[in-house]
Write a protein that binds this DNA or RNA. Structure first.
Length: 549
DNA sequence: GCCGTTTTCGGCCCGACTGTTTTCAGTCG
């Protein structure tokens, strides 16, 4: 079945292309507003009846027909017709932030530019500023965006690759239960962005080749015992070795070059078991996530207690249908309880976030009453009243004090006006951190991995301020964010700043992203004792009352 | 194309922000 995101992206692409080709503006608006309203529906559109689809605001007969065509025929005639008359490079330009149909049209028809490569070239030659409506800033933004997109090419979010990689590994293991099959490389180190999945095995080479042929996975290239294959669209590398050399090869392929260098590792060393190897070097076992050649040899993480996924007791920073979430408050609460969490933090968007259905003060108060009622029903499980308050342009939080003080905690995040220089970002964040009602600084840089750079900020300055003001920093566990970047965790711990691994869930299943957040946290060596939501319910309650006093 | 009747046509038109302008067009969330 064609999934919802495919249908949505086709509807909005259709709207954009129609605008690019100067078609009826009201029809264009109809399609984009239909897409906007459909976004809130979680059931597969293809499974809904015509009546159910028509009951969605903005969805009429025409949109229903389009959805049916996309989901049954896998193609949409009207969209195909538009694509036929639009060079593919021009379609690519529509994805560039800051470029909409109007500006793309100008670039295409006035400058006769039809690919993003030519567009980058034009920016570098200062040709864009000549055109009406374009200035130096727009030109620089476009160039930066294209360069960023080029650097992201061939890279993938770890979490996106995780499922197919895990499935493949399990299938291989099932087929050869007596052999070893393990992840290695950057995938085993759980790097947030990876270029390929790496697997090492001692399965007999002929049998391995036969297995891959069976899975319709032809070998692209072979270099000695290294096979390059494709796992769907993701590059897969298989290292074929023997039982005798397995541990050594596994260790070598797992570790980053910097880690090997720190250990003064030489290829000639032969060993069995990574624990034994580290012991022989005088170190405790170093978990794969840490093997980046940073500070992993300076601390005995086995003694200090690095965070583990199962140690998370609570799940903070979650949205509900009250703002832009897909699950109701009750669904979120019951699911968290089912997952054996002791507590839940509800943090819908605040009033300024109109695009996300941010809550007006009275709606927030009303949600608080619903939470009280659910707490009576679900005890001893506890829901905490929170909000994800926008950090306004001047650094203020989004509600007056009399509203903020009715809440148990506040996650403060920047959502708009992301284009800031470092000085502005620092000022804005510091003001929010100094606000006595701020409990957690949400996704501190606003980055979206492979999609958007974060705004620049002085990490040390911000972390120092969090230490001074007793503010916790979020490690947003959404696989596209993983923000705070794990590289800053050592500094935060050094300053005594706590980290909260938050899913930023917009539906109940979003809690599971904390698994990826925990992997990132482990890369930074986050200790259990410094993890806010590894606290028990009692500890968390006492933390909150202390942070408020 | 959607919607809602002034009930099958005619009106629809987010709003803040940004970067471009010299009073506003285009984009985005």
């Amino acid at each position: 079945m064609v999934d919802n995101s495919t249908i949505l992206s086709q509807l909005s692409l259709f709207a954009k292309l129609s605008e690019l080709h100067g078609q009826n503006p009201f029809k264009i608006r109809a399609y984009s507003s239909a897409a906007f309203n459909l976004k809130k529906i979680k059931d597969p559109y293809a499974s809904l009846t015509d009546e159910e689809l028509l009951s969605i605001p903005g969805v009429g007969k025409g949109v229903v027909e389009s959805i049916r065509e996309i989901s049954t025929k896998d193609h949409w005639f009207d969209l195909d017709e538009l694509l036929k008359i639009t060079p593919s490079g021009v379609v690519d330009m529509l994805r560039i932030k800051g470029l909409g149909p109007k500006k793309v049209k100008t670039i295409w028809s006035d400058l006769k530019i039809e690919t993003t490569g030519e567009l980058l070239d034009a920016c570098r030659q200062n040709r864009l500023v000549e055109v009406k409506g374009f200035g130096l800033k727009t030109q620089a933004d476009i160039a930066r965006y294209i360069e960023f997109a080029m650097s992201a090419e061939g890279k993938w979010h770890f979490a996106r690759v995780w499922q197919p990689a895990t499935d493949f590994k399990e299938n291989l293991k099932l087929a050869f239960p007596d052999d070893r099959v393990e992840f290695t490389g950057s995938f085993r180190r759980a790097c947030e962005v990876i270029e390929n999945v790496e697997i090492i095995t001692d399965v007999d080479i002929d049998e391995l080749i036969a297995f891959c042929d069976d899975q319709q996975m032809p070998t692209d290239a072979m270099d000695g015992e290294i096979y390059s294959k494709l796992l769907g669209v993701y590059p897969l590398i298989i290292y074929a070795t023997n039982a005798e050399e397995f541990d050594q090869f596994w260790f070598e392929t797992t570790s980053s070059p910097a880690h090997l260098k720190k250990l003064s590792y030489s290829r000639l060393e032969s060993f069995h078991g990574e624990e034994a190897f580290y012991k022989s070097k005088g170190y405790p076992y170093i978990i794969p996530e840490l093997r980046e050649g940073r500070n992993e040899l300076d601390t005995d993480f086995t003694k200090e207690g690095i965070i583990e996924y199962w140690q998370l007791q609570g799940v903070l920073h979650n949205h509900t249908t009250a703002s832009d979430g897909l699950s109701s408050l009750r669904e979120m609460a019951e699911y968290a309880k089912d997952q054996k969490y002791q507590y839940l933090g509800i943090c819908d968007h605040s009033q300024s976030a109109a695009y996300a259905g941010g809550l007006k003060a009275e709606e927030l108060i009303k949600q608080g009453e619903e939470i009280d009622a659910l707490n009576r029903e679900l005890a001893p499980f506890k829901i905490f009243k929170g909000v994800e308050s926008d950090i306004l342009s001047n650094g203020d939080l989004d509600y007056p004090e009399e509203i903020l003080k009715t809440l148990d905690f506040v996650v403060a995040s920047v959502h708009s006006g992301l284009k800031m220089d470092e000085q502005k970002a620092n000022q804005r964040l510091i003001k929010a951190i100094e606000n006595p009602y701020t409990t957690i600084l949400g996704h501190p840089t606003g980055r979206l991995l492979l999609l958007r750079e974060g705004y620049p900020m002085d990490h040390k300055y911000i972390i120092d301020a969090c230490a001074t003001n007793n503010v916790v920093i979020e490690l947003n566990a959404h696989p596209y964010r993983l923000d705070l970047d794990w590289r800053w965790i050592p500094y935060a711990q050094e300053k005594g700043v706590m980290i909260s691994i938050n899913p930023d869930a917009h539906e109940k299943q979003g809690y599971h992203d904390m698994y990826f957040g925990t992997l990132a946290a482990r890369k930074g060596g986050l200790l259990q004792k410094n993890t806010l939501n590894a606290m028990s319910l009692e500890e968390f309650e006492s933390f909150l009352s202390k942070s408020r006093s």
